[in-house]
Design a protein around this nucleic acid. Sequence first.
DNA 1: ATCCAGGTGATCA
DNA 2: TGATCACATGGA
Length: 291
Amino acid sequence: MKIYEKEDIIVVEDINDFNINQIFDSGQGYRWKKQKDNSYTGVVKGNILNISQVGNTLYLKNTNINDFKNIWYKYFSLDMNYSEIEHKICKIDNHLKSAVEFGSGLRILNQDEWETLITFILSTNNSIQMVENIIDNLSTKHGDYICEYEGKKYYAFPTPEKLASLSLDELRECKTGFRDKYIKSVAEAVLSGKFSLYELSNKDTNSCINQLKSLSGVGMKVADCIAMFSMRKSDIFPVDIWMKRVIQEFYLDTEMSLPKIRSYAIEKFGDLSSFVQLYLFYYAREHNIGK
DNA sequence: ATCCAGGTGATCA
DNA sequence: TGATCACATGGA
């Protein structure tokens, strides 16, 4: 991997196992919007970035070398060896080999804990498209204005302070639906300091998950997603409707409950569990497995 | 019109 | 544990 700055653009050459189209189409990074030129523009921790990919080269606009090192390098998991991860998963069995070959280039983003927490609370009994819309609404109406970029105004994701200060009606105006009370409750818990969200990633997986589950609106699956997409926990396996479908289809003869599917997967895949989940989710959704 | 979407919480056996 | 329901909202 070779990184340099050229005419205000950060160029990353010789990047392997990285495909932005797949990454942003894999149910994570809900704030990235595809542009007319096939690049993506998004907001992360109050920073606007435009990213595009041509072959094995990435082009990052509206940033600098410092921010690349401090923010984007880890956000896009460029510090991880996905060749090795994909190789290990391929060796497990032929189903996974197909899934990895199909989704090669996927990566687990390393997102902000707070934004991820709210995002996945919103995902319950909801569609990805709707979650994107709600997050847009929340950010536009209640996030700090950043600046205009390419003719469009961008806003940061609203802080815990801001969301805690909103009434349930104001939250509903952003189309949160029945999840309004969860958002408010969680925002208050984080704001008050009763819930140390940003210390969780340092804890072991079990206490991390258990503490997340103590929050209102956060069950097993949402806790797993938060730990996976913002805390780099890998011995977890978020089981949603797609995972149930694809695991049943590939591995099971009889019906199995969601908690049992989770245990089954973690036992089978160990520390590769979250990565396996990523490839299976993408594969299942693109192929409509089990529908 | 009816069903479904990256589920959770409450209730009951 | 396991089964059943309600829950806002909008797109198919």
